[in-house]
Design a protein around this nucleic acid. Structure first.
Lengths: 200, 200
DNA sequence: CGGTAAAGTGAGCAAATGCTCATGTTCTAC
DNA sequence: GTAGAACATGAGCATTTGCTCACTTTACCG
């Protein structure tokens, strides 16, 4: 097994990137079933041995794909969330939704494969970090706008709001309906969340 | 390959059931990755050859699992939908949601595995038949209660309502939050759909 | 330089998988 | 009873998979 990981030279850093790119392509083109380490290495123009020098495991490779895209999305999301605090509630929600949709869309192929192809095993939700980050946002709004709710009622609303937000943004980003402007969908969703779950 | 399928004696009919049961168990316990035809046959206490007599293919087996659970869910759903036509809109929505949640819950292990483990390949949405059936219901309500909407606006609302309905029911059935009554969640969701997407 | 560590290679192994087929058993109908 | 159809078996083949390891090449540094 030897001492895996952590490339230090430029050359190897580039290789890690090429491997991840190749993995993304293979995942998008042939699904998780077609994602063999041999194939990824071949597509990357690299030998399997090299792949196993930087990724101890096939799962490790997939995990890294997930981490990278998640971090990228999270970056956008937190930025949008800090911008949003100064806006009126409905606009804040709208902006966060729009940002999330755009971020998901930017990684369309990868996100789609990660959501639809890769089995999640034990854990149940996709993009748990994104969900957690959105959770803080939602919690804040509910606390501010509906302080009279019992804790259980508040939790129920947060649970639903989170589910609706994530699933709807994913759907808009990955399976947009033909002939409907995505902006309009985001608007409607923001209204839905605002008047239906955040307000009392 | 020979002439697959269609058991005519009781013995073989029973075997088909045992195979499907075993497949469900294996899928729930070891995920899609662990679903090998050899293992299913072993768990069913049957030889691989017998499995291949009635299921031409591994995909065929999974497809059959999907078909059976889908049909069961669809049965409940259509019944609930005909009962619901006499109810006030909000109650109708509530009842359909509750029925869907209950039906999904009844097949908890299988549905969970089918949704989270099995890759869908080309098609993008899970439970397409259920979605289509719900679509008719939603379309009807939107047409009745918001006839003044432009077609595009109506389509946008239907698209969102369908997504919210399916994803929320799946989430309530498969990952219910601790300490919150599912009934309350269904109520809130019904309100959300009613006032947010069906009404003008 | 030249030596050492890092980077990179690829044949190939052990295990698993999907599936077949030659063989045997049980049922049904006459 | 017996022919023949339906049912059932499981050893095993061909292929693929994840991964290793003995080895070569490249970069770095005194």
């Amino acid at each position: 097994m030897a001492d895996r990981r952590s490339p230090v030279q430029v050359r190897s850093r580039a290789m890690v990137d090429r491997i991840l790119q190749a993995a993304t392509r293979v995942l998008a083109e042939r699904g998780y079933a077609g994602l063999s380490t041999n194939r990824v290495a071949a597509v990357a123009g690299v030998s399997v041995g090299s792949l196993y020098r930087y990724f101890g495991d096939k799962d490790d490779l997939v995990r890294e794909l997930r981490v990278r895209s998640t971090q990228d999305i999270l970056g956008d999301l937190t930025a949008a969330m800090s911008d949003a605090v100064t806006l009126p509630t409905r606009d804040a929600i709208r902006q966060v939704l729009a940002t999330l949709v755009a971020a998901l869309q930017r990684h369309h192929a990868l996100t789609s494969a990660l959501v639809n192809e890769v089995p999640l095993g034990a854990q149940s939700n996709v993009l748990p970090e994104v969900e957690q980050q959105l959770g803080q946002f939602t919690r804040m709004f509910v606390a501010v706008h509906a302080p009279h709710l019992t804790p259980a009622e508040a939790e129920a609303r947060i649970y639903l709001a989170l589910g609706v937000t994530l699933s709807t943004c994913l759907r808009i980003a990955l399976e947009p309906p033909p002939g409907i402007a995505e902006e309009r969908l985001v608007d409607l969703t923001a209204d839905l969340l605002h008047t239906g779950l955040v307000l009392p």
